[in-house]
Write a protein that binds this DNA or RNA. Sequence first.
DNA 1: GACGCTCATTGACCCACGTCAACCTCCGCA
DNA 2: TGCGGAGGTTGACGTGGGTCAATGAGCGTC
Lengths: 239, 239
Amino acid sequence: MSLDEWKPGGAGCAKALCEECEVRGLSVCGALRSTELPALAAIASGRRLEPGQTLFHEGDPAEDVFTVTGGALKLFKLMSDGRRQITGYLLPGDFLGLAYGSTYVFGAEAISGTTLCRFPRRQFLRLLDEFPALEHELLGRASSELAAAQEQMLLLGRKTARERVASFVLQLAGRVGSEHDASLALPLNRTDIADYLGLTIETVSRTFTLLRKEGLIGLPDKQQVRLLAREALQEAAGI
Amino acid sequence: MSLDEWKPGGAGCAKALCEECEVRGLSVCGALRSTELPALAAIASGRRLEPGQTLFHEGDPAEDVFTVTGGALKLFKLMSDGRRQITGYLLPGDFLGLAYGSTYVFGAEAISGTTLCRFPRRQFLRLLDEFPALEHELLGRASSELAAAQEQMLLLGRKTARERVASFVLQLAGRVGSEHDASLALPLNRTDIADYLGLTIETVSRTFTLLRKEGLIGLPDKQQVRLLAREALQEAAGI
DNA sequence: GACGCTCATTGACCCACGTCAACCTCCGCA
DNA sequence: TGCGGAGGTTGACGTGGGTCAATGAGCGTC
């Protein structure tokens, strides 16, 4: 990933110096007042990633932090024999790259076409000193990520396949904010869902089919789910 | 848990107004200069928990944050049918209670006799505004907790029983800082280890025995492990 | 419009780990 | 010195989900 792929005002970021960025309200940048935004815009650059493209690998030096402005990313850890655990996925407004030491402790890869806003880590950290509201916002996000991580540990350590898939659908609905009975776009394909839920692709497929046959979900196509019975799904998720 | 069980300068905290606290260097409080400590001491109170005693339940209003000054605590999530996932354990110097919303998202229970220093959450948050270094320290801790959580997700989602137990022993050695070939005190009993690793108590027991027969660990007694072959154990942990 | 590719589904079989149960060890207590 | 309870170990067996393999559905392309 060469530096010059990132352009100030490039795809995904720094539109009119952050002022007009459409995900500002969703992102950490929303913690800053308009008068403070130029300081952020000054160190921002944007980029687009194509589906499947890698943003960074686990172990790469952690030189940048990012805000997702469009699309979706998955975060994952790999074992040497290829086993993979997806530890999370990011949607527009999400922040990426907290000071996990000097190297990234997971890899990040675009799922769909994705636009990002990049900030050099050192300069971003300096901004945290200048704007405590930004650091406060980050701490809040880190806390809720931790809560989500613990929920995921419960899922991975103790839930059955049916409970995992039901939980996943409900979590997704909560994240993208579904209206009643609306279809949800699945940000992950079956392989990724399997690696996120600690299952195999076959088990994910079988379990989707099971929940469909039980009438809890609809599967209009491979990339969509429909919540048909939220209560029953919550029951199935193991509450 | 009634308020008056917590005493300013009581067991576990606020010794000589934090100045002489023996875990200060290990804890978030170490981020403050001596001149700033009194502000912290002013809102601190201490308490001792007996083994098995509950600090708070999942769902309780999150009114306090804590520093562990002695002993050990486990954090866990429960399902309605009793299945349990231990999401972490805390040792002296660890911080507990980040702003996970208005209620605790996990339960916390003393493993051994445990001493804690308590800070009312609202007042503690006010201190964060006053001392950015404290907030910065918390963000750093939250980041490394997140990294640990992701490692645990990989363990729970993708590792075999043997890999999980080997990983656990190595992680423990890293946490308590073992000398070569020294015995480690296990902070968790078999039931807790099982709930931490997403296994059953029988599988944990069998796997300890397996690793012992393979010569990777020694088991001098039920509460200790000895690393006999660190390299081989790392291999077994799945790297 | 048929070929080839990717992704998903489905079926048959297998195995790592869970379940159930017996037993052992340690320790406090009488 | 024996009893009882808690925690741990071990064995026999069962099963949820993994593995392997075939098939299907969608889609780009020549």
